[in-house]
Every structure is written in C-alpha cells, then in structure tokens.
Design a protein around this nucleic acid. Structure first.
Length: 204
DNA sequence: CTTTGGATCGTCT
DNA sequence: GACGATCCAAAGG
C-alpha cells in the first residue's frame, strides 16, 4: 500500500526536506512493464547558491537548470564522467535546493537490478551508493527533469506505511571539499544498506 | 581490515 | 586545461 509522496513535503529548505525522504520509496517503471523499487535509507542536503558544495553555488547553468525548477523534479547529473547520481529537487520554483539520494534498500525488481549490476553478490551492495543506486534502478541522464510526484512519470516517489525515523543519524557530507563542516547527511540508523562513503568533515 | 590509483568526460575556468 | 556530490580492483598491514 503506497501513495504519492506529497509535493508540499518537498517545499522548503533541503535540510528540512532531506530527513523526510528517509524510508520513502522510489519506483522505476520500464517499457517492458517491469518495476524496480528501492527504499531511501541515506540522503544529503545541498543548499543551492548558499552552499559551496552545491552544483548551483555559482548560479544557474545548463547542467544544474533542473535544480532551479519546482520541488518534486528529479535532478540527474553525471559524476566523474562515469556514473549517474540522482537528486530530489526541493525549495520553491526558482530557488536551487536539492537532496542527493545516496543509498536505497532494494525492495522489488531485484532480478532486474542484478542484471544492471553484474557481479554484485550481496543484496546490500546493489544500491548502497549514489552511483550504484542509479545503475541498479536504471536511472540515467535521460530522466533529468522527471516529475517524481506525477502518477504518469516512469520514476515516482512514494510513501508507504514506514515513517521516517524520529531520530535520523546525522553526519557531515561525503566526497566534497568545500562546505565540509555542515552535518547535512541523514541516514536511517543502523541500516545495513547505507553507503560506505566516509564523512568529509570532522565529527562531533 | 585500510589505502591507493585508474577509469572517463561533461562542465566550467 | 583541470576537476569532480564515485566505484572498484588490487595491493599492503
């Protein structure tokens, strides 16, 4: 039993939206009728033009244009020339706020995920990283700009009976060199499917 | 277990 | 021309 993720819950600062996305579902439908579903267990908030680690820090460009769109869009970018990474756009239309999805727990369509993640043995390693989850779910740059809150989209954000954790684990973000001090990474506590990435900043 | 280096290319300087 | 919001395999302790 699942319902569309309410768009109103994506309005506002990415730091407020990010923990709300924990335990939400991402579903991806393919043309052959198959569906892959993952449960979000790790996210990071990026605060647009006020955040030196954000792609939008130096303003709007062709690449980051989707980040400036309305909340509920999917922002997909290429990482290191090799991988795809996916964000949920937050904020309000015209303001660049985004939440990077860093890990999902495989829920459905596992065979299909394994097909796109050849050689992966353990189920928990299928989508425990931002590049890995895009590969496992079949998300690419073609999906940039998808409205995650529309029932007609191939990629959708859903909420089922599992609420976000009341006390999410918080750390500094992973893989960045600026804005390292902010604890804007949120995780489902003690979940086996979180990424292996190490926080960039000091801890406390 | 941890550390290191290579792959690979669009984007912005 | 440099540099990533990464991943993986290989080598070292």
């Amino acid at each position: 039993m699942s319902r569309p993720f309410p768009r109103r819950d994506l309005v506002g600062d990415s730091t407020a939206v990010a923990p709300r996305l924990l335990n939400a579902l991402v579903s991806v439908s393919d043309t052959d009728g198959s569906v892959r579903v993952g449960r979000i267990v790790e996210v990071e908030a990026y605060r647009g033009e006020r955040d030196p680690a954000s792609h939008a820090y130096r303003g709007r460009t062709a690449r980051n244009a989707t980040m400036f769109g309305p909340p509920g869009l999917l922002y997909v970018y290429r990482s290191y020339g090799i991988h795809w990474c996916a964000n949920v756009v937050a904020g309000v239309d015209g303001v660049a706020e985004a939440v990077l999805i860093r890990a999902v727990e495989p829920v459905a369509g596992l065979d299909r995920m394994r097909g796109d993640r050849p050689g992966i043995v353990r189920e928990v390693d299928l989508a425990n990283g931002p590049g890995k989850l895009c590969a496992a779910l079949g998300v690419t740059g073609d999906d940039d700009g998808t409205d995650l809150c529309s029932p007609d989209s191939r990629i959708r954000l859903l909420r089922d009976g599992v609420a976000p954790p009341e006390r999410p684990t918080r750390t500094t973000r992973v893989g960045i060199t600026r804005g390292v001090e902010h604890r804007w990474r949120y995780l489902v506590p003690d979940h086996p499917c979180v990424s292996r990435g190490r926080p960039s900043g000091g801890g406390s």
